[in-house]
C-alpha cells in the first residue's frame, strides 16, 4: 500500500525491509495473525469439499432446492454422517467467514472506535449464529409437528 496523502497515517510507520524485528506489533499478536493465516488455508481446503458437496446435493442434483422441505431435512439428519458434515461445515465456514470479515473491517474502518465496535458486532453475531446452528443440529426432533 502506498500513501500519497500529506497527513501521517499508520501505514507510514512500516519498518524498512530487512530491518530487525522491533515491534509495532507485539509478538503475541503477530503469532495470532499467522495462526489466522494458516487457518484460512486449512479450513478453506476442507470447505471446498464440504460446501461444494452441500451445494451440489442441495441445489443441483435431483431437482435441487424444489425437493427440500422439513421431511427432507429429517431424512438427512437421521444419518450421523450428514450431522457431522453439517456441524463441521457450520463451524469451519463461520470461523473462516468471521476471520475474513475481521480482516475486511481492519482494512477499511480507519477510525479505531469504528473498527472496534464493528469487530465486536461481528464477533457477537457470529457467536450467536454458531451456537444457534449447533443447538439446532443436536436438538433436532423429526417427530415435531
Amino acid at each position: 500500500m502506498t500513501s500519497t496523502a500529506s497527513e501521517p497515517r499508520d501505514s507510514d510507520l512500516l519498518a524498512a525491509p530487512n530491518s530487525p524485528r522491533k515491534s509495532f506489533t507485539p509478538r503475541g499478536r503477530a503469532n495470532r495473525e499467522m495462526i489466522a493465516w494458516v487457518f484460512m488455508r486449512v479450513s478453506g481446503m476442507f470447505l471446498v469439499v464440504l460446501v461444494l458437496g452441500h451445494l451440489l446435493i442441495m441445489n443441483i442434483l435431483d431437482g435441487g432446492v424444489h425437493r427440500i422441505n422439513f421431511g427432507f431435512v429429517a431424512g438427512r439428519w437421521s444419518n450421523p454422517f450428514w450431522q457431522v458434515w453439517d456441524l463441521a461445515m457450520l463451524w469451519l465456514a463461520m470461523l473462516h467467514g468471521t476471520n475474513g470479515l475481521r480482516v475486511v473491517i481492519a482494512d477499511y474502518a480507519s477510525r479505531p472506535q469504528t473498527r472496534f465496535w464493528l469487530t465486536m458486532l461481528l464477533y457477537v453475531a457470529s457467536a450467536l449464529v454458531i451456537v444457534t446452528g449447533t443447538l439446532v443440529i443436536f436438538t433436532f426432533d423429526p417427530t415435531m409437528s
Binding site: G71, G97, F140, S145
Partner: peptide, 27 residues
Amino acid sequence: TGVLVFFFLLVHVLDTALVRVSPEAYN
C-alpha cells in the same frame, strides 16, 4: 464474493434453525 457469501451464511443458518420452531415455519 467472500463478504456476500458470509452474509448469506448468517441468514441461511437462521432460516434452517426454523426446523426447531415447526415443520410449517421451515417449509
